[in-house]
């Protein structure tokens, strides 16, 4: 990939994160050019008893993400994960296994954790989607996020957004979670670096903090 040709003249002005995002956008654009959009035919086909026909070309759909309605133009084969990362610039949700086995891509659909690599973007219509960006930002830390930092619950950090999404959902539905519960909460999240003990500790500290009142 010829990153250098696309870089701004003053490369010091661009952060590593912005640079990586830029590179991703280039790759995504090329992907779109390879497959020319088919003629959009969204008209319901009454004769066949079809209430909706979508694709195979890219079509604009609406997704409610972190409380805001976003419009995104994607082919039906685009997963929610790809739509978030490649089309909506929400790169906090990570792609690892792309087959539902690692949990890195976990987001909430109506408050429940799901692996976004196993959901078609169009199937997420009509649901409240929450991504890690909706849970917290560096200047709007959640108690769980702060506890992750305090307990060093991230090493390379790649599993961390997914881990936090699973844990946040579990703590919301069971604010009195014990060790066994927090372990089960992240049973679908794999961490290669071995942060689990500190993830458990972080979650339990939030549970204890919650019992004392807000910490």
């Amino acid at each position: 990939m010829k990153h250098d040709k696309h870089g701004p003249p003053d490369s010091r002005a661009i952060s590593r994160r912005a640079f990586i995002k830029g590179a991703g956008a280039i790759a995504a654009t090329t992907g779109l050019i390879r497959t020319p959009p088919a003629s959009a035919d969204a008209a319901p086909d009454a004769q066949d008893g079809i209430v909706e026909r979508i694709g195979p070309g890219a079509q604009t759909i609406e997704l409610k993400i972190n409380g805001e309605v976003k419009r995104v133009t994607v082919e039906p084969r685009v997963t929610l994960l790809r739509a978030l990362r490649d089309h909506l610039n929400l790169t906090g949700t990570k792609l690892v296994c792309d087959r539902g086995a690692c949990g890195a891509c976990t987001v909430h659909l109506d408050g429940k954790p799901v692996t976004s690599c196993m959901v078609l973007a169009l199937d997420a219509r009509g649901h409240e989607i929450t991504t890690i960006e909706g849970l917290l930002t560096p200047d709007r830390m959640s108690p769980l996020g702060a506890a992750f930092v305090e307990h060093d619950a991230a090493q390379c950090g790649f599993c961390t957004p997914g881990m936090m999404m699973s844990m946040a959902a579990a703590l919301a539905s069971n604010p009195k979670a014990q060790l066994e519960d927090v372990k089960r909460a992240v049973a679908g999240n794999i961490c290669r670096c071995g942060t689990y003990p500190h993830v458990f500790a972080a979650a339990l500290s939030v549970v204890r903090g919650g019992n004392r009142g807000e910490s």
Binding site: V96, C97, R99, A101, C102, K183, R184, V186, A187, N189, I190, R192, G194, Y196, P197, V199, F200
Partner: peptide, 17 residues
């Protein structure tokens, strides 16, 4: 070669350390 067939330690396999 996949993350379900190549078995990595998960949260319920974590001993007390």
């Amino acid at each position: 070669p996949t993350m379900d067939d190549y078995k990595l330690v998960g949260p319920l396999d974590v001993p007390e350390i």
